[in-house]
Design a protein around this nucleic acid. Structure first.
Lengths: 190, 190
DNA sequence: CGCCGAGTTGAACTGAATCAAGAAACGTGG
DNA sequence: CCACGTTTCTTGATTCAGTTCAACTCGGCG
């Protein structure tokens, strides 16, 4: 089971006050496979840290379920488009395996940002890293074909291939499930 | 000509100390059309605010010049992948028109982050906004075809169509220049 | 005046979507 | 713990969006 404090300490050193104040705001939650932590079209109030399990962010486009993002144990997940703006989110959060989460009210997080420079810094660092990851992702769409994107995923996040159904991975990569199945079988032939 | 302080005040209120300390670190720079502010493969040291003009971030993929991002007057631009990590950047910055810029050393910006909670907050907010924009961009690649992406660009950033050559816009949208030309002529037929 | 980069247009080709049918795996209740 | 229904995955045939290659136009500049 992954620990939130360890995770944070990679980026900033929390004082014991800061640590306590954070943990005070965290609530443990266990959810079953298939459960939705958040529904598209509603206002989000919480941010999550995954202690064990896996979840994805998704949205609907012309009735199709498209996966935007995966997070596994030791990672944060949340519908930032809503948390940050206070408006409804386009996205939902869907749990793919029975999972154990820490739940924190985004309001409480904002208070921590205000109260402690350290948390503000953490927020900046994580947002910047998120930004850079998304930029890297954009590059894969501009310059690579379906097969190249798949191979990159195999290299960088092989665990996903075991834990998420093909259809979710396909929409994540921006290709059809059928095409992904073909690409994969072509690879396995060798 | 756009003003950096006004821009920042949309997000946080700077004290006059903070404002002075920021401006102290800014150097005005004029660059000619076609100039490169930063070359791919080198380490970046500066972040820029565009007072007038337009620039793009680009990279090479199999020898092709691909545009990753456009910024115009009143916006920031920088190769964050290098600034944030200290490593070489995959990207370059190319100025499309004679432009007037404010240049600030990223080190100096980091000092401002440390010294003033307010700047840290600004950084967090801008990084978060950047992140959300990139997520929105990813969505366009997952769920839209070339024509839909073009039409979205027409809606959201019509000025780009006047100020950037077709080839740059095409690679930004992840399509060939030829295809973009066809899409555009189809539209103009009505 | 002639060249050069930027944009357009046509023709041939190809990667990937769609449609459709069947096989495998999964889980739920009897 | 087996049987059945549902969901997930595979495979084939067809269609289509978008690429590539190539030739041509146009406007600006030296």
């Amino acid at each position: 089971m992954k620990n939130i404090i360890q995770y944070i300490n990679q980026y900033v050193k929390l004082s014991s006050d800061e640590e306590q104040d954070l943990l005070k705001e965290c609530k443990t939650r266990e959810v079953e496979k298939g459960h939705d932590l958040h529904t598209p079209g509603t206002i989000a109030k919480h941010f999550y840290f995954i202690e064990s399990g896996i979840a994805r962010i998704y949205y609907y486009q012309n009735g199709n379920d498209i996966t935007d993002f995966f997070a596994i144990e030791g990672e944060f997940i949340g519908t930032l488009d809503s948390l940050f703006t206070g408006k409804t989110s386009l996205f939902g959060i869907h749990v793919l395996e029975k999972s154990k989460l820490l739940q924190i009210k985004y309001e409480a997080l904002e208070r921590l940002y205000d109260r402690y420079h350290t948390f503000e810094k953490l927020g900046r660092i994580l947002a910047t890293k998120g930004y850079l990851e998304e930029v890297a992702r954009t590059k894969t769409f501009q310059g690579m074909n379906a097969e190249e994107r798949y191979e990159l995923l195999v290299k960088t996040e092989p665990h996903l291939l075991q834990r998420a159904p093909l259809g979710h991975i396909a929409s994540y990569l921006g290709i059809s499930q059928v095409q992904l199945s073909r690409i994969r079988s072509k690879k396995n032939a060798f």
